[in-house]
């Protein structure tokens, strides 16, 4: 990607947008599997108990929430890097 310097602004935006969409797709896949897969097996998961928490219940009440928070902060972090990579920083007129 060393030729970013030679791209026009429109080309940079297009490439930036493609990478952004790929990142969104990956993060949404994680989001989906954390929120919607464990409920399918909740009663089986509940047979496993960790520190008093039945696992199925734990996924819904704590684990998924922690993942959501991490996903958002990671996206902010990754996008800041992407902004810099394509020279599309805020107020960078």
């Amino acid at each position: 990607m060393s030729d970013i310097e030679n791209m026009s602004r429109q080309e940079r935006i297009n490439a930036y947008w493609k990478e952004n969409n790929r990142l969104i797709a990956i993060l949404l896949a994680i989001w989906f599997s954390v929120a919607y897969i464990p409920p399918l097996f909740v009663n089986q998961l509940n047979n496993i108990v960790i520190a008093g928490f039945p696992l199925g219940y734990y996924f819904g009440s704590q684990f998924s929430l922690v993942v959501f928070v991490i996903l958002i902060f990671y996206y902010a972090y990754a996008m800041n890097k992407l902004d810099a990579k394509y020279h599309l920083k805020d107020r960078d007129k």
Binding site: I24, L27, L28, W31, A35, V42, G56, Y57, G60, S61, S64, L65, F68, L71, I72, Y75, A76, M79
Partner: peptide, 24 residues
């Protein structure tokens, strides 16, 4: 009990959509 966790997950997981798809 467990069935109400739909609210806990729903009202937090929505922010992922907000962050990735709308806010910026």
């Amino acid at each position: 009990g467990y069935d109400a966790l739909a609210y806990i997950m729903g009202w937090t997981g929505g922010y992922v959509l907000l962050a990735l798809l709308f806010a910026p």
